[in-house]
Amino acid sequence: MKHSILLVEDEQKIAEGIMDYMNGGEAEYETCFTWADDGDKALELVYENEYDLVLLDIMLPGADGFEICKAIRAKSYVPVIFLTARGREEDRLYGYDIGCDDYVVKPFSMAELSAKIMSFLRRSKGLWEKKSSIEAYDIVIYPDKLQVFVAGNEVRLAPKEYAMLKYFMEHRGMLITRDDLLVRLWGYDYEGSDRVVDNHIKKLRQALGEPGKKIKTVFAKGYRMD
Rank of each mutant, 00 (worst) to 15 (best):
Ala63Cys: 06
Ser133Met: 07
Trp35Gly: 00
Asp189Gln: 15
Val78Ser: 01
Lys125His: 15
Val80Cys: 04
Ala71Ser: 14
Ile14Val: 14
Ser124Tyr: 11
Gly87Leu: 02
Gly87Phe: 11
Arg205Ala: 01
Asp101Tyr: 01
Leu181Gly: 04
Ala15Ser: 12
Asp64Cys: 12
Leu165Tyr: 07
Leu157Ala: 14
Ile134Glu: 10
Pro143Trp: 12
Leu43Arg: 07
Met1Gly: 05
Lys130Asn: 10
Leu45Pro: 02
Cys32Ile: 06
Ile58Leu: 15
Leu56Asp: 05
Glu89Lys: 14
Ala220Ser: 11
Glu11Cys: 05
Glu44Trp: 09
Phe168Val: 01
Glu90His: 11
Gly222Ile: 09
Arg92Gly: 01
Gly173Ser: 02
Leu121Phe: 00
Asn199Arg: 15
Ser132Ile: 01
Gly99Ala: 08
Leu182Glu: 12
Cys32Phe: 11
Met1Glu: 12
Asp101Ser: 13
Gly212His: 04
Tyr103Leu: 04
Glu28Pro: 02
Ala71Ile: 01
Ile14Arg: 05
Arg184Met: 03
Gly209Glu: 01
Asn199Met: 14
Tyr94Pro: 00
Glu11His: 10
Tyr94Ile: 07
Ile68Phe: 06
Met1Asp: 14
Arg172Lys: 12
Ile81Lys: 10
Tyr96Ser: 10
Lys2Cys: 06
Lys216Thr: 09
Leu175Ala: 13
Gly173Ala: 02
Ser119Val: 06
